[in-house]
């Protein structure tokens, strides 16, 4: 399954800009292969559906440390590890709002 999503916010700037679109594939589709550097879509209680880059894969892929690029990014520094069950999928295609 894939989802088309619009990026809101700039915690992954300059890689992702506000208003960019991403196509994300579910982890079921991907066979749960999430690696450091992947950008994942996950549910975070109190934050909603988030987009962050995986910095570290823990416990054999059962949880992840995620990071934004900004000092003020809300990421694992704020809410800790992201367990696999809250991960919906990862970005497989990035459509920029403006061509570069």
């Amino acid at each position: 399954m894939v989802r088309l999503l619009r990026v809101r916010g700039s915690s992954l700037w300059p890689d992702f800009h506000e208003g960019d679109y991403v196509l994300a594939a579910s982890i079921n589709t991907l066979g749960r292969k999430i690696k450091p550097g992947d950008v994942i879509v996950f549910q975070q209680p109190g934050y909603g559906t988030l987009l962050k880059r995986v910095q570290q894969v823990l416990e054999g892929g059962q949880s992840f440390i995620v990071r934004g690029t900004q000092i003020t990014s809300s990421d694992s520094r704020n809410f800790g590890q992201v367990p696999l069950e809250r991960v919906w999928g990862k970005v497989i295609w990035h459509i920029r709002k403006h061509s570069t």
Partner: peptide
């Protein structure tokens, strides 16, 4: 009609 995903900073 496109769903939004947040890549925000600070307090949401």
């Amino acid at each position: 009609h496109i769903e939004v995903v947040d890549a925000h900073c600070d307090i949401p």
